[in-house]
Amino acid sequence: MESENRRKALEFKDVRLVYHTKEGETAAAEHMSFCVYEGEFIAVIGPSGCGKTTVLSLAAGLLRPSAGEVCVHGKKGQKGIGYMLQKDELFPWRTVRQNIFLPLEIGKKDTPEHRARVLALAEKYGLSGFLRAYPAQLSGGMRQRAALIRTLAADPALLLLDEPFSALDYQTRLNVCEDVCRVIRGEQKTAILVTHDISEAISCADRVLVLSARPARVVASHTMDFSELSPLKRRESPQFSGWFEILWKELNV
């Protein structure tokens, strides 16, 4: 098998995806191949409308590739995935506690042990004071944090983050980004972050994938060489603007 001792969490093998509508067909992805290793934090950037979200839908198994293969942990059937969306999508009629238990109910894992694990997670990341509150009573940042704990509740092996910070105002966005990265690294999760924000990609990820315009394919993969892991500290580091310039140019070819 692999000579490398790192195991693959997700692999796209020459994936092609075509959308069919009444107006015609659109190729969203073509010859897309890449690998995400276990424990790695990947950011995916690309020109707007290039099909970044499509990558996540494929990885989550919500879409089937028209050609090629998508493997999660070497298998084709997807399981153990946590999807975090742009909006928190917390259910307003449930309390935060009931919201973060939702994946357990769906996965028929609603046992005291799993509940205890989720509550411990909530406690660890500062949500325990808000468990009885309804989402409408929380700030945007706190809601997104609750959404992250919900994403982690079913203990997914792979996290898919679809621009999870873009609905927040700038200051909250930096803070929540800091929090989310800390939680993901703390729990040693494999994560793929899709974003249109170059600085966000540089500050969060171990590696940044750059997609081409539609039909999307991977044109570059850059390993971020920061000694710092914290997004805010990375933003202050001297390499930051260098990376920004490189990625900016690649997006605007």
């Binding site: 919500l62 399981k79 999807y83 969306l85 999508e89 996965g107």
Partner: peptide, 17 residues
């Protein structure tokens, strides 16, 4: 809300769920 349906589908929810 289609976003919430997407969320549940990503958790592997059935149509009944």
């Amino acid at each position: 809300d289609p976003g919430k349906i997407l969320l549940l589908r990503s958790m592997g929810a059935s149509k009944l769920q």
